[in-house]
Write a protein that binds this DNA or RNA. Sequence first.
DNA 1: GCCAACGTTGGC
DNA 2: GCCAACGTTGGC
Length: 139
Amino acid sequence: MAHWLFKSEPDVFSFADLESKGPAGQEWDGVRNYQARNHMRTMQVGDRGFFYHSNEGKEIVGIVEVVRTAHPDSTDDSGTWECVDIRAVRPVVKPVTLVAAKAEPRLKTMALVSNSRLSVQPVSDAEWAIVCEMAGTEP
DNA sequence: GCCAACGTTGGC
DNA sequence: GCCAACGTTGGC
């Protein structure tokens, strides 16, 4: 199973907002970046990911799960953009800050650290395990 | 609020 | 197809 990281500004849409959507989850719409779209196209139902708060907090705050594979973005008329649906699984015990991720040598190549502008990122199995450990949560 | 990094657009 | 100009993101 592949792992991912979804970035959102908590002012706009926070992990608590996703939790409020329940098991049906939420369409991850509004992504207008080809790399991010291509990552979403490869996602499978059941794939898990981290939920990261950008700008405010700058930390990984929760675990999410893909509940629907890529489909046309309902907020896009051009037919160019697609998105998956995700649901909240659980918040992490201890949020992992960007500062903490940068300070961990084994996460040096993590996209969150090396390519901060990508809004939907792949997370390697090794990175997944390390961050879960730092977050005090089960993988 | 500033600005660096990055992606996209469009003129040639 | 190159690359300068522009817009956006997100850390600081």
